[in-house]
């Protein structure tokens, strides 16, 4: 490397096109975007009902839950921790939501009650993981079981129907913008943009990356590693609550088996989206692309009448292949 005391041009020369291309490819979003387009192109050719506005809008609506919860899970991953409790949390928050709405006929109070539960769960996960230093995989696996058990106990293994029947509540999960784009997709998209902005352009977002990238360096830079991680768990709890509210609206009740296996779906999408399990690496747009790839894949394979069993096999193979690709790319560059 040239290095001189009287260097007259410390401003770098403009990067040549090849370097720019390389830099572009290093961002994991570009290969993901290409993969998504390949998936869409493949099914458009293979099936004539796939590429219709109605079907695309439906898939976007279906992917909204995983995307909303995925934002929070991805943020926790980036901070260097893990959150798998979201699968039970989406089911659990429906109980205060429906029960309070049934009692008060107020959507606002119902949502407030649901968010309160999400906040408490996030705080418990965060306190045990960040402040007490217990492995977050174990902590959130624990809360995953506890919440599911709690839901079974409270509901007596059955669903609690929505008796308030508020139109506004129905619209959250079932309404469509201009009769086309499902509201959940809109909500997920707005949240995605908001949090992507936070992660890129607010000091807090950068602190999350720094804490996940190298906690010791972050500490020396004056960050409170524990507080940042704690905040990430809170965010994850609240976003899973939003997903749970949309799910409850779609189901019209608090269903005890809602969201079973949802945590795996979310973690798979987050990892597929290039978010590193070891922290500090990944983006929310990558996560969103991961969700979309898996959603379109499952929708398209369904249209080709591939059995669900085989859909699972294919999806699993693709996740491993994608993460392996990411890993090799990272090693080579």
């Amino acid at each position: 490397m040239p290095q001189s005391l009287d260097a007259a041009h410390p401003v770098p020369p403009p990067a040549p096109a090849a370097a720019m291309l390389k830099a572009l490819f290093r961002r994991s979003e570009i290969p993901l975007l290409i993969s998504l387009l390949v998936v869409i192109a493949f099914f458009s050719i293979a099936s004539d009902t796939f590429l219709t506005t109605r079907n695309i809008a439906n898939v976007l609506g279906q992917s909204a839950l995983a995307m909303t919860a995925g934002i929070g899970v991805a943020i926790v991953f980036i901070s260097g921790e893990v959150d798998v409790s979201v699968g039970s949390l989406v089911a659990a928050v429906a109980i205060p939501l429906i029960v309070v709405m049934n009692a008060t006929e107020s959507l606002f109070l119902g949502i407030a009650a649901a968010l309160a539960l999400g906040l408490v769960v996030g705080a418990v996960n965060g306190y045990l993981s960040a402040y007490l230093g217990i492995n977050s995989l174990i902590v959130t696996l624990g809360t995953l079981f506890i919440l599911r058990g709690g839901v079974y106990l409270y509901t007596g293994q059955t669903a609690i129907p929505d008796e308030a029947m508020l139109e506004s509540f129905f619209q959250i999960g079932n309404g469509r913008l201009l009769g086309l784009l499902p509201y959940p997709a809109l909500i997920a998209f707005v949240l995605l943009l908001a949090f992507a902005y936070v992660m890129r352009h607010r000091p807090f977002g950068r602190q999350v990356y720094a804490v996940g990238g190298n906690p010791e360096v972050a500490r020396l830079a004056g960050y409170s590693v524990k507080r940042v991680k704690f905040a990430c768990f809170i965010i994850s709890g609240l976003l899973a609550t939003v997903a749970g509210i949309m799910l409850a609206s779609r189901l019209g009740s608090a269903v005890h088996v809602a969201g079973l296996g949802f945590e795996f779906q979310v973690v798979a999408a987050v990892v597929l989206g290039g978010v590193s399990l070891s922290g500090g690496i990944g983006s929310l747009f990558g996560m969103a692309l991961g969700v979309l790839i898996l959603s379109f894949l499952s929708n398209g394979l369904g249209m080709l009448a591939l059995a669900t069993e085989w859909q699972l096999v294919v999806t699993g193979g693709i996740i491993i292949a994608a993460v392996a690709f990411d890993e090799f790319k990272r090693r080579r560059i």
Partner: peptide, 17 residues
């Protein structure tokens, strides 16, 4: 004591963006 994923410029201002 730098975050390797960050740009050089961001690391310069790591302590206070």
């Amino acid at each position: 004591a730098l975050i390797s994923e960050f740009t050089v410029a961001e690391n310069i201002f790591l302590e206070r963006h």
